[in-house]
């Protein structure tokens, strides 16, 4: 008799909406085919899942929607490999696989009463969008909320519709930037690499949590800027994206030092990263 559930069996999800975000980047809004499964499914900001096209394989992305909005799950991905190519060819109404949620969470309960500074680059806004919306939906919990978001070019910015909404909100500050050369004639955001913009903005580190997510190169140059501004390593959070297969600490490929990014992460403080070998 089988007493243990097969964790590798995904939920079936219907794609109810597809949004073209940027060249090669799409957002899927997903709903559980089985309503009961949808009702009992919960997750927290920072967690990820394995999304699959049956016959092609599974890919790991964060859950990009907020846990405060439970009617659907959203994910945003860039078409890069075999699975994301197959995903990108799916249409509204199609069925894909989804298993999760996996990993640890952003400890937003512990951030009550603090300023939040989000710094994201390129396709790394999705994992942050989840926690940004989570924080905005619980707006009273926090002091100032600032988002600094950059992409290679104006076209590469994701969630453009939400960036407009965020820029119009009076209870948060949004700074968008594009890499030099990526601007358009009517671009009225900033021009410059994310670490440079952070340096120019000089956000206060007092009572502030910084949440940083982006390509390795952006993270590498942003951490020192934050340290210079007085952020302590335990006040800087990031989320790692090692290659994963199982999501539950068994397949071994996301192992970095004694941790498994999939179950001990993906959320780490800079302090925790300093104690790990740089194999991420």
């Amino acid at each position: 008799m089988m007493s243990t559930k097969n964790v590798y069996k995904p939920y079936l999800m219907r794609i109810v909406k597809i949004i073209d975000e940027a060249p090669g980047v799409k957002t899927f809004r997903l709903q559980f085919l089985n309503e009961e499964e949808g009702k009992s499914f919960t997750f927290k900001a920072g967690q990820f899942a394995e999304y699959s096209v049956f016959g092609e394989g599974e890919s790991t992305f964060c859950i990009a929607s907020s846990p405060t909005r439970r009617e659907f799950i959203e994910c945003t991905f860039r078409q890069t490999g075999r699975v994301t190519k197959a995903l990108a060819q799916k249409e509204e109404g199609d069925i894909i696989g989804f298993r999760g949620p996996y990993g640890n969470v952003f400890p937003i309960d512990e951030w009550k009463g603090k300023n939040l500074l989000f710094i994201a680059g390129g396709i790394a806004l999705p994992p942050m969008r989840c926690v940004i919306w989570n924080a905005l939906d619980l707006r009273d919990w926090f002091e100032n909320i600032t988002v600094i978001y950059g992409a290679r070019s104006v076209a590469d910015l994701v969630y453009k519709y939400e960036l407009t909404e965020w820029s119009q909100r009076t209870d948060m500050k949004l700074i968008t930037t594009v890499d030099p050369g990526g601007e358009t004639p009517d671009w009225n955001g900033r021009v410059g690499f994310v670490p440079t913009i952070v340096e120019q903005e000089e956000p206060s580190s007092t009572n502030t949590i910084a949440i940083v997510c982006g390509p390795p190169i952006m993270i590498k140059y942003t951490f020192p800027v934050l340290e210079k501004l007085g952020f302590t390593p335990n006040a800087i959070f990031t989320t790692l994206e090692n290659r994963m297969k199982c999501g539950v600490g068994k397949c071994g490929r996301c192992n970095v030092g004694p941790v498994y990014v999939c179950k001990d992460g993906p959320v780490f403080t800079y302090e925790q990263l300093l104690a790990l070998p740089a194999e991420y």
Binding site: S52, F54, G55, K250, G252, R253
Partner: peptide
């Protein structure tokens, strides 16, 4: 050694998901 890979074989119409030693 217990590390493994997960791979799909077949087509989107019909196929199988395998766990393989890695």
């Amino acid at each position: 050694c217990s590390c493994f890979d997960i791979q799909d074989e077949g087509t989107q119409t019909k196929g199988v998901r395998l766990r393989c030693w890695d």
